[in-house]
Nucleic acid binder design. Structure first.
Length: 312
DNA sequence: TTCCGCACCTGCCGGC
DNA sequence: TGCCGGCAGGTGCGGA
């Protein structure tokens, strides 16, 4: 599933392979994939045709490509192509001269490109489970005046991204403020980690891994955790996502690949996620799976003892 | 205001 | 062999 390291891997690929390209044409094969674009599929295509992709930026799991006119190649304008990969979305950079008449059963949107630095002609949005989406949206200023996200120098973010917090790999991320915000909540620590308004980019996989590294059970109440414990789990999340990024992200199957269609290798680096019954790498106790907020959570019952009065 | 549960969506897999 | 239900899970909305 694409979480922060996977989305950052895709962003880096787009930065190298398609930034500078002009969108010659747009094909929307599945209207639902542009459901968040206010003008519908036709408006989505109209707003992209003839525009130049001037950067590849990211905050948390949101990815965007600021747009400019093709002539007068100045700074980005006030609009951007915004993407969220959801559970299974992929952005694939394709050159038909290399891959032939490539298609995919889950191809939802295709951008035809001219002038990409890689020579690629297609930017394909492939999405099996269709939780992902694309839109063209306005850029709005960041409240703190710092760049909106990794890969962009603009102090602006897409309007739908304005409400989410900065992510742990963002140089402008304020860990002290995040610790305080989490402790003000009256919920479980995993719920807080997954709340994208507090901090962005952490999903189910890395939340479980960070909690295991920090030796905290997912149901520990945020308002009863000491600041140092919250800080410990944030540091662990930063560490595990940095390691995953170095290995191209986590791939369990072909639902996550980079822009070239290649898998990441971090799945083998996971300590507990998806390893029910397998020995904890620290103490050897079989990992446990619980259903928490309608999804699986994996813990070591010894390293991460369940609290007497936790918040499920 | 804050927190929580659920719907959205598709394909795979196991059970019958 | 075919059908059906469960499961995967990020996000946003509505209800408590």
């Amino acid at each position: 599933m694409p979480e922060l390291p996977e989305v950052e891997t895709v962003r880096d690929g787009l930065d190298r392979l398609v930034v500078g390209a002009v969108v010659r044409d747009v094909e929307v094969f599945r209207d639902y994939s542009v459901r968040r674009h206010e003008g519908g599929p036709a408006g989505f295509a109209d707003q992209l045709r003839g525009r130049r992709l001037v950067a590849a930026a990211r905050r948390g799991k949101y990815l965007w490509l600021p747009l400019a006119e093709p002539v007068g190649t100045g700074a980005a304008e006030d609009a951007t192509l915004l993407a969220h990969l959801g559970m299974s979305g992929q952005l694939l950079v394709r050159d038909p001269a290399v891959v032939g008449d490539w298609s995919h059963p889950h191809l939802r949107v295709r951008l035809h490109l001219d002038g990409a630095p890689s020579g690629a002609r297609y930017l394909d949005f492939v999405d099996q489970r269709t939780f992902g989406h694309l839109s063209v949206t306005d850029l709005v200023p960041t409240p703190d005046g710092a760049p909106g996200g990794r890969g962009s120098e603009l102090a602006a973010v897409p309007e739908p991204v304005a409400h989410i917090g900065r992510d742990l790999l963002d140089p402008a991320f304020d860990a002290t403020a995040a610790v305080a915000a989490i402790r003000r909540r009256r919920t479980g620590i995993k719920r807080a980690l997954l709340d994208q308004t507090l901090l962005s980019g952490v999903g189910n996989i890395y939340a479980d891994e960070a909690l295991w590294r920090a030796r905290l059970h997912f149901a520990r109440a945020t308002d009863r955790l000491r600041p140092i414990e919250v800080r410990r789990v944030l540091d662990a999340a930063t560490q595990v996502m940095t390691e995953a990024l170095a290995q191209g992200g986590t791939s369990f199957d072909d639902l996550y690949v980079n822009v070239n269609g290649e898998s990441g290798y971090f799945a083998r680096g996971l300590a507990v996620y998806g390893r029910e019954g397998e020995p904890c790498p620290r103490c050897g106790t079989p990992a446990r799976r619980d259903v928490f907020t309608n999804r699986s959570s994996f813990t070591c019952p010894v390293c991460q003892p369940r609290p007497r009065s936790g918040r499920w």
